Simulated scan of single mutants.
Amino acid sequence: MNGPNGPAPLLTLNNGVRMPALGLGVYQSPPDETVAAVTTAIENGYRLIDTAAAYGNEKEVGEGIARSGIGRQDIFVITKLWLTDYGYDAALRAFDTSLTKLGLDHLDLYLLHWPVPSAFDTTVASYRAAEKLLADGRVRAIGVCNHTPEHLSHLMARTDVVPAVNQVELHPHFNQPELRAFDVRHDIVTQSWSPIGGVTRYWGDRPSEAEDPLRNPALTGLADKYGKTPAQIILRWHIEHGLCAIPKSVTPHRIAENIGVFDFSLTPHEVSAIDALDTGVRGGPDPGDVGPDTFS
């Protein structure tokens, strides 16, 4: 049974698999709060859960899914390969570990967490491992995170399967129009991490109010107009662009609010006004600078 907000619409990936356009992210969700966050999300209509080996909560995500009572075929589960497991054989072993922690027999989408420009051969080898997992039916779709058009071009030139998804930092203050256009040209769905700009609040020094999209007057004004929160306005903007957004929360009322964006729409003019808030400034790491030791 769907929650009060109902399920998100579905996006069709380049191999025909269908993925919800909005899901729950669990980055920085403490393991002891993740089970409840996942079950709350599913109760409220979420059917996509995004985790990663590096988040340390795959086991709890699996427990939350199991407790929900929703059939496995109705939940779209994503996890990611971490940098320390890059390489063909290492990637296959890491996938088995993630699947065991999740308590699942297959995955809906498996992603490479970052490109490693200084050791791109290992990125390619890892993606080839993902291609094998796809061919063997252990995953339904494969893709990448944080790849620029240049990274994607290099990867696609050396592999066989065009990534189904590219998950990147994307919010009104950093909305990546060139990357989105590249993804569209290659039939890659762009998935937005930190979709409401959370990275501007939790990464690095405390930002000024001007850097927080939730406090931007253009967005608070639209929130007043539609009787929604600024976060809901931003998530609706992602939907209007055909993106997949994965907002993170462990707070029940926010989890419910975040999926309550399918009962209104923004006008093209309003979407353009939000587009114009782009600063071109990342909140998170630059993918071009990421290496094996970046996060150690």
Rank of each mutant, 00 (worst) to 15 (best):
T190P: 04
S265G: 09
V35C: 00
I42L: 14
R128Y: 02
N14F: 08
A141G: 05
D121N: 15
L48A: 07
P247A: 01
A210S: 04
V184L: 09
N146L: 02
T97I: 10
G71M: 01
V184R: 14
V184H: 08
I142Y: 02
Y55W: 12
S29Y: 00
P252C: 13
I75A: 07
L92N: 05
G242S: 06
A164W: 01
T220K: 10
R67D: 11
A276H: 15
R18W: 05
G103E: 14
A37M: 04
P207G: 11
W203D: 15
R72G: 09
L111Y: 02
I188R: 04
L48I: 11
H147K: 08
D286G: 05
E257H: 07
A90M: 13
A52R: 00
F264V: 07
I196H: 03
L13W: 05
L11W: 11
W114V: 08
P7M: 14
G45Y: 06
G137P: 00
A36T: 10
H106P: 03
G25N: 04
E58N: 04
P230G: 14
F76Q: 05
D183T: 13
A245K: 15
G284A: 13
A90W: 03
A125F: 05
I234A: 02
P172Y: 01
K101A: 12
G56T: 10
N15V: 14
P207H: 11
D160Q: 15
G143W: 02
I234Y: 00
H269L: 11
Q232E: 00
G260H: 07
D286L: 01
V144T: 08
L266H: 05
H113D: 10
H173L: 09
C244A: 14
L102F: 09
L24D: 15
I259H: 02
W193L: 13
A141R: 04
L81Y: 03
L179N: 03
D293P: 06
L83D: 08
R158I: 13
K228E: 07
S272F: 07
R206L: 04
R140F: 01
L109H: 08
D286K: 02
T279K: 12
A37P: 02
V124M: 03
S126A: 13
L111I: 09
R93V: 11
R201A: 13
D85A: 07
D96W: 00
F182L: 15
A94H: 08
A52K: 03
L48W: 02
K132R: 13
D293R: 06
D160E: 12
T51R: 03
Y110E: 07
S29K: 00
R206W: 01
D289F: 06
D205N: 15
A53P: 06
L179E: 12
I75T: 08
G64N: 10
Q73H: 15
R282L: 07
D96C: 04
A94R: 09
L99P: 06
V124G: 09
E211R: 10
L219K: 00
T294W: 00
Q167S: 14
H253F: 09
R47G: 08
T51Y: 02
G197I: 05
